[in-house]
Nucleic acid binder design. Structure first.
Length: 294
DNA sequence: TGGCAGGGGTTGA
DNA sequence: TCAACCCCTGCC
């Protein structure tokens, strides 16, 4: 079984199940089953070694998937040292890594993500593989999704998202080059290009840029991030900050790697301080204000 | 056991 | 700016 000795910590559960990728199933706390570049694989992290059972995957592919070339401690040194929340997020989840997911699968996952919880998005990914992915349960290409039609997608519990995914698949089956986003293209322009696709708005475009294209300056704002920034950084503000306020603030406060700050804060907040916020009436008020703010 | 609220957004009017 | 879009889960 090939393996890679790691010089940094790796938290497979936080990394694979935390909302970046949706094709992973836990087998045991240290063992996960899923796909990397359409190849089925089981990953195990033990005693500082990351091993995998599919020899057709190279160490470089594994390294690339977990962004192991990225020096996170150095990046965290560029963040404001006076930010206690980010410090807490880093200290409690230093094994969290940003992944490099396949752009098409990542885009599909996030088109399916609206008003869905992580577990439901994983179920959809699983159903798409089972019903459309053939014997090897490969994630279906735009062409296959396009040929299968909206009804087949609805059968996979996509609901109204089926229309969006079918329409986007049709466009990409004809023009796959839309997803060839060169590193020289500024993130804002790359986001605008993705947002020409049906079902893709500002949140999804930034998730795809962050988790598939390694654009560390992409700062996705969803209900959790909005809630987090509001509660932790602007607790006295009566209204939730608007999308454009959040975008400007994040770039100014965190700098060019704001997306990585977001990844850690998001995970830490959801599993820590944010998990305790359950006041439903307030939540409803927040949601209305948040949407109005957008 | 059944009803109901709510969820990691986007769209179109 | 705001309702509509699907449907699954958790809770009472």
């Amino acid at each position: 079984m090939p393996f890679l000795p790691l010089s940094c910590p790796l938290d497979l559960s936080a990394t694979l199940l935390g909302g970046q990728s949706f094709c992973w199933q836990p087998v045991s706390p240290d063992l996960f089953q899923g796909w990397i570049q359409s190849k089925p694989v089981r990953l195990e992290y033990k005693a500082g070694n990351l091993s995998w059972d599919n020899p057709s995957l190279s160490a470089d592919q594994i390294r690339r998937y977990f962004s192991l070339d990225l020096d996170l401690p150095s990046i965290f040194k560029t963040f404001p040292p006076s930010d206690p929340h980010l410090k807490a997020a880093w200290q409690s989840h230093s094994g969290l890594r940003p992944v490099r997911e396949d752009p098409w699968e990542c885009l599909s996952n996030f088109i399916c993500s609206s008003l869905k919880q992580i577990i439901q998005i994983r179920q959809i990914n699983d159903r798409l593989r089972t019903s459309l992915g053939g014997t090897h349960r490969v994630f279906p290409s735009p062409k296959i999704i396009c040929q299968s039609g909206e009804a087949a997608l609805r059968a996979c519990s996509l609901g109204y998202r089926a229309r969006h995914l079918a329409a986007t698949a049709k466009i990409l089956a004809e023009k796959p080059e839309i997803l060839d986003i060169p590193p020289s293209l500024p993130t804002q322009e790359a986001a605008a290009r993705l947002e020409t696709l049906p079902g893709v708005g500002p949140k999804i475009s930034r998730c795809v840029l962050l988790y598939a294209y390694s654009r560390w300056d992409a700062f996705p704002v969803d209900v959790w991030v909005s809630r987090l920034v509001w509660k932790l950084y602007f607790p006295r503000k009566r209204k939730a900050p608007s999308l454009s306020e959040l975008e400007h603030w994040s770039a100014k406060h965190f700098g060019p790697d704001s997306g990585l700050a977001q990844l850690f804060l998001f995970h830490w907040f959801r599993t820590g301080p944010g998990a305790r916020t359950k006041a439903l009436p307030k939540e409803t008020v927040f949601k209305r204000q948040s949407r109005r703010g957008n």
